[in-house]
């Protein structure tokens, strides 16, 4: 939800409409969960899970090949996987069809930059690269504005660096 909230706030700052919600599953750490985000230039009134996502983020690579992470995604959808593997290697675990597969080592980047295994912020950098919805500068400005109030400069700069690296390093 951290990534979803950041994308939502970025959308608000650009005058876009948004909606983000998790599907609450088993209440134990590490259990697989699904979360949804809608972005639109029109007000969003629909309150049901997304059935046909244009963009799928997989935060836990062990789900690839275990569940169909592309369920309902159209042929031109983009799938971004948090993994140290390449798009070719990750495609060996399941058939992504004609969908574009992108890979970013978001957890590793988070450990290097923030010092914690929280891949959310780097994933937002990968989203920016994959979709062009936000520029790096816009994300950086947002992080300094919103994180700057709550966290130390070290944490803020770590997150900024995480976004930059993910933007640069995402493959596919």
């Amino acid at each position: 939800m951290t990534a979803a909230k950041m994308v939502a706030e970025l959308a608000v700052e650009r005058g876009k409409h948004f909606q983000a919600f998790p599907e609450y599953g088993p209440e134990r750490s590490g259990a697989p969960i699904v979360a949804f985000t809608r972005l639109s230039s029109e007000p969003i009134q629909i309150y049901s899970p997304i059935e046909h996502p244009n963009l799928v983020l997989v935060l836990d690579e062990t789900l690839v090949g275990t569940v169909d992470v592309t369920d309902g995604a159209p042929d031109d959808a983009i799938v971004i996987v948090n993994t140290t593997e390449s798009p070719e290697e990750i495609s060996a675990h399941m058939d992504f069809g004609s969908r574009r597969v992108m890979c970013v080592a978001a957890t590793k980047i988070a450990l290097d930059t923030i010092g914690k295994a929280i891949p959310n912020t780097p994933m937002v950098g990968a989203i920016a690269k994959a979709t062009g919805l936000f520029t790096l500068d816009e994300i950086e400005e947002h992080l300094r504005e919103s994180f700057g109030k709550k966290f130390s400069e070290k944490v803020v700069e770590g997150n900024v660096e995480a976004v930059r690296r993910a933007y640069k390093e995402v493959q596919g």
Binding site: A4, F18, Q19, A20, F21, P22, Y24, I44, Y47
Partner: peptide, 12 residues
């Protein structure tokens, strides 16, 4: 208001 659908969802 609706639990989770609204209570837990980020909206404007």
């Amino acid at each position: 208001y609706d639990g989770f659908i609204i209570s837990g969802a980020i909206g404007p």
